[in-house]
Simulated assay, not measured.
Amino acid sequence: MKRLIIICFSAFIFSGCQSTFLSQKDASNEKHQISSSIPVRADTLYHYQIISPDGLPISLIDMADGVKDKDVVLVGEWHTHPAVHLFQAQLMAALADRNPKLVLSMEQFSRPDQTVIDRYLEGEIGEQALLSQTAAWPNYRSDYRPLVDIARQRGLTVLAANTTKTIVRCLAEHGPDIIKKMPAEQQKYVARELDTTDGPYKAKFLARMGGDQSDALEGLYAAQVAWDETMAETITEHLTFHPGSQIMHVAGSFHVEGGLGIASRILRRDATLTTALIVPSSVLNPVSGDAKSYRLLISPLPERVVSGEENLSSGASSHTRLPERCPY
């Protein structure tokens, strides 16, 4: 049973760490309700419209000006969505124009990858070595290459902000106490503090997993928290040692929404830091935002599953697959 829950969690990594959105099929009847004041084409996957925290459509330039003084800009994404990844590259270029000390922080690389990334940015190795010597996601070339290339061309830092799949698997199986049993070298790859106490984020996670609190789900929540805590720790520690930097961090939307994931853990470590949140939202079902967030209105991706006979986990990208067993 626990193995089945972990398989479902692997599927959640792909779809659950992103925002919930209407499928094309379910939302097709709502096209006539889209406001003409929001100039987004609902029939392409490359168009987007930025909505300010005040609920007003704004341009990319206006947004970049609005967040240029924030210490951290958290960009939530629907993984593999073309418009989101186009927006990320355009925003990064605009922020780099405004602050030459911009830093790109990424969920899509883990802490052990940092040395290889640094060598790539310095021109010591090529892209083939970058991909073969790191745990880069399989959609790197299509979705994240543009971001890293901006950093490479402009001499910017890229942070491998995430923890590892092995640690996530061990936490999912055994809970937070397993960290103490790991070698010191492995412990460096996860945040020193994992806050798994009850709260709105935990309630949202458990609801998304479709279950009540249990030992199995407690372990899965610890794994979820390990991502958020490790990314937050990576970000705050870099800002401590590099004052004046601005960090743009890209991660699945679930980690960003409402400031409950990464942002709350950044502020727990340093309440003086300022953050901006950007989350995607379906143009076919625009949800009201909150005062904290910019929204990126985009067309929904195609449905991943259309019948109960399909195996949800079989279609997951390889970056979602955890090791079979915890080695510790």
Rank of each mutant, 00 (worst) to 15 (best):
Y144D: 04
V84G: 07
V40H: 06
N99G: 11
Q114K: 02
W137N: 06
A96G: 02
S35A: 14
R111E: 07
S59M: 10
D118P: 05
R152M: 09
F87L: 14
L74G: 01
C170L: 00
L147K: 02
L147P: 04
S36A: 14
E124V: 13
D118C: 03
D69E: 15
D118E: 15
A135S: 15
L130C: 07
S110E: 15
A83K: 04
L91T: 01
F109C: 01
V168G: 05
L56D: 11
Q49H: 10
L131C: 07
E107P: 05
E127N: 03
W78A: 13
R111S: 07
N139K: 01
P176C: 13
Q133K: 06
V158R: 00
Q90T: 09
L102S: 07
I125H: 03
I34L: 15
S142M: 11
Q128W: 08
A42T: 15
V40L: 15
A160G: 06
S132E: 15
P138R: 08
P100L: 11
R169W: 11
P176R: 01
Y46I: 11
V103L: 01
T134R: 03
D97Y: 05
M92P: 02
C170A: 15
G155I: 06
G123F: 10
T164K: 04
T115F: 10
H85G: 00
G175K: 06
Q128K: 12
I50H: 00
R145D: 13
A64K: 02
F109T: 00
G175M: 08
P176S: 10
T44S: 14
I38E: 02
L60E: 07
A96K: 03
T164I: 08
C170D: 04
D54Y: 10
D149V: 08
V75Q: 01
A64N: 00
L131K: 00
Q128Y: 13
F87V: 09
T163N: 05
S105Q: 02
Y140K: 00
V75P: 03
G155M: 07
D54A: 15
Q49S: 12
T163A: 11
A136K: 01
K165N: 11
